[in-house]
Computed example of a mutant assay.
Amino acid sequence: MAELSKDPNEMSFLDHLEELRWHLIRATMAIVIIGCLAFIMKDFIFDTVIFGPKKMDFPTYRLFCRIATSIGIESAFCADELPFTIQSRTMAGQFSAHIWTSIWAGFIIGFPYVLYEMWQFISPGLKENERNNSRGFILIASLLFFMGVLFGYYVVAPLSINFLGTYQVSKEVLNEFDIGSYISTVRASVIACGVLFELPIIIFFLTKVGLVTPEILKKYRKIALVIVLILSAVITPPDVASQIIVAVPVLILYQVSIYISKIVLRKEMKKMKKDIKPQ
């Protein structure tokens, strides 16, 4: 009985795992290298970037203060300083914060390369037309991610810090935050917004595989609106203006995702009609 010939280009499951391992190793090495540079630049990373939203001369606070002043109302954004202190309550607290902040900085800055390594692993399994349709994926996904990071850093993080740092249940209770708690608030705001801004990319691929349609997105648009408003109310000070500032970009992204889903579905329908040949 003749043996079936195997495609020399076909990889076994173990070969795929080995390939994935090397992509992950290279991505991790990039994060570590950038993280080491961030570790060395301690003063800039902490004093300028991390603790920037704690200072009242932060651009976001100055902008809201000018807006409030121009319409003749008093605002907490015009205060001289935020009424809380940051401290380290454990022996290794500051060193651990330094290490982990450097690693997260390495991931954020090295995100395009991490994405490139993942794409290098996935793209060989795609068809030629799928690779052509996904051209520019790394650039667009990276731009969306960095836009989300900037939005999280300049909008969500300072609004959250200003609200939580000034909130008191009683004047008997002082706000003295641990350094890990403060950094996690900044990090969560930045990373969450970076991932959230990838929504159009996620919808693009979900539409390609048939899990999402424009009709489904439109059907659940009201539910999405409620969820966005609830999230905005949780992460921002309890005033309508701040909630709108956070909610509007997310709703715009959701609407953009609907249009992207329509375009993808239209192209898929044209492709199906072209593939169906008359008998």
Score class of each variant (00 low, 15 high):
2 A>V: 13
3 E>P: 09
9 N>Y: 15
10 E>L: 07
14 L>F: 15
20 L>P: 01
21 R>N: 06
27 A>Q: 00
36 C>Y: 02
41 M>T: 04
47 D>E: 10
50 I>P: 08
50 I>V: 11
59 P>W: 12
70 S>T: 10
79 A>F: 11
89 R>H: 14
89 R>G: 08
95 F>I: 09
104 W>E: 04
118 M>T: 08
126 L>W: 13
126 L>S: 02
126 L>A: 04
128 E>H: 09
130 E>F: 13
134 S>Y: 12
136 G>T: 02
137 F>L: 03
141 A>L: 01
142 S>P: 13
142 S>C: 01
142 S>Q: 09
153 Y>F: 07
159 L>N: 06
162 N>Y: 11
166 T>L: 00
167 Y>H: 08
167 Y>I: 02
168 Q>P: 03
175 N>E: 08
179 I>H: 11
179 I>R: 01
179 I>D: 11
181 S>Y: 15
183 I>D: 10
184 S>F: 14
197 F>C: 06
200 P>L: 05
200 P>H: 08
201 I>E: 15
207 T>N: 09
212 V>M: 09
212 V>D: 11
221 R>L: 13
225 L>N: 05
226 V>G: 08
230 I>W: 12
234 V>P: 10
247 A>K: 02
249 P>K: 03
252 I>P: 15
256 V>L: 15
256 V>S: 14
258 I>W: 11
258 I>N: 12
259 Y>V: 15
260 I>S: 13
